[in-house]
Structure formats: structure tokens, C-alpha cells
Write a protein that binds this DNA or RNA. Sequence first.
DNA 1: TGATTTTCACACTGCAAAGGTAGGTTATTG
DNA 2: CAATAACCTACCTTTGCAGTGTGAAAATCA
Lengths: 133, 133
Amino acid sequence: MLVSTRGRYALRFLVDLARNRESGYITVHELAERQEVSKKYAERLMAVLSRGKFVETRHGAGGGYRLGVEPEECRVSDVLAAMSEELVPVECMKCSPNTCPRAQVCPTLPMWKKLGGMIHDFFDGITLADLMK
Amino acid sequence: MLVSTRGRYALRFLVDLARNRESGYITVHELAERQEVSKKYAERLMAVLSRGKFVETRHGAGGGYRLGVEPEECRVSDVLAAMSEELVPVECMKCSPNTCPRAQVCPTLPMWKKLGGMIHDFFDGITLADLMK
DNA sequence: TGATTTTCACACTGCAAAGGTAGGTTATTG
DNA sequence: CAATAACCTACCTTTGCAGTGTGAAAATCA
């Protein structure tokens, strides 16, 4: 039931950028150091966030990353999705429609569906703005 | 964010036993076949449930498993715990007190804690009796 | 323009945990 | 005592995550 470090680090990076929005562009080096994540790994995760338009980038000297969204409008669920974090509790719910042959008779599926909904709603209701305080 | 098959299969086995409580002892062979899980794997998972007192066993001919608890009193959270399913969403919440040096300043930890609480409450509120209907 | 600084891309490795199997042992029944 | 069924342990295989190395491409600044 763990959330991958990918998703968790990404959130921490975004919160960091959100809190330091006035400082202009921030390099991966700085970000990685503050968040105590290896620079190399941080680099990769930030690239994903960049593709997902969560951050704006600037190459070259004086460059780096800055937040590309309004903290109030950036939902945690979107960030996790961008980091390809599956928010469903069971394999068979990954793709819809459910292809499991037992889906119609599975006594536990309704429970998993309900939980999946809960989790999704939970992350939907939290934004970067909530986390940066 | 997936629940292991261990936990999921175990629940299905228990629901099966609960639904067939009048049939006396049920062999792993039968159980595995109905639930479409390999007999060998089912055997192992049932042994765990046995150690956890969720089922009663009987060796030899005519033996097998039968439910060892009242469905109304068997919480899903207990079953998952017995199958060593960690219900926390992040590594650092596995042991308490939290040993992560960033715990005090982590901007995301409160969110994970809240989610963890929600998930635990969710599974606490569901019993075998709810699933067997 | 050219050196420097930065992001970006991708292949690769290492590792741990999960899923699943094999074979044999012990307990119980009839 | 033969058959049956749970039990146990060690093992194998796969998978996905975490993390690194190398080297580009892009932009800056002098």
C-alpha cells in the first residue's frame, strides 16, 4: 500500500518550488540538496514534472526550475498521476473496463472500488497550496 | 498503492469459508479450485490464516479448514495485518515513533498520516459478514 | 563565437519484495 | 497401516522501483 518515492519526492520538490516562488529559477542541484535526494534522481523526476507542465524550465547559467502552476489549482492527484502512481488498490482496477473474469462475482471488488474512490477523492481535495503552508 | 495478492486471496478464502460454513471442513484443494488460485500457494496462505486463528483445521481424511471466527467479528484490517500487509502509505510511517529526521519539517507527512488513518478506519469498519453477502 | 551552465534523454545496474513452486514432514482419520 | 490432508522450509523467478553513468541538447553570458 505504499506510495512510490517518485510521487513523494515530486510533491516535496513542488512544495519547495512553491515556497520559494519569489527566488526565480532554482537549480536541481539546490533542490536536491535541500530535499536530501540524490541530484541525479531529482534530475529525472524534475524532467517528468517538466513534461507534465507542472514546472517551467530555463536552460543555461542562471537557469533552473520554477513553478508552472498556481498552487491552489495544482491537485495532488494530478501530480501523482503524472509520476505514474497508480491510485487503485488492486491490479484488476488498473484498466477499465475491468477485464478480470471474476469481476462480476468477486465478493471483495466492491470494497476495493469504494476504497479506490476514497483515495482518489482524498488526493483530489488537496492542492499544493494546502501543502506549502 | 496496491494491496498484495496475499491479503486479497486470504480475504477471498475466508469469504468462501464463511459462505460455506455449513459444509463442514473444506480442503485447500477445493478452496484453491473455486478461487482459481494455485493449490500450493493457497496452502501457504491458509497456513498463515491458521496460525492467526482465523480458521480451524483438521488433518487427515475428511479434514480441511473451517472458519474459526464469527464473520461479524472478523475485521478486514485484522486479516490484512495477519497477512503482513502494511496499511501505511509511506515507508517512514511503518514504525512508530517515526525515525525520519525530516519528520518534524516534512510538509507532506500530515497528509500521509491523514490518509493512513482513513485507510485503517476503512478496513476497520468492514467485517467478513459484510463481504459474504 | 565559445566556454560554461544547465536541463534533458536513455540505457543500464542493483536490489528487494512479491509471487509462486518443490519436496518432504507431521498429524489424523478410517 | 494406508491414505489423506495440513504444515513447513528452502528455493526459484519475475517484476518494478530506486538510483547511476554517460552524454547529449539548449540556453546563457562574456
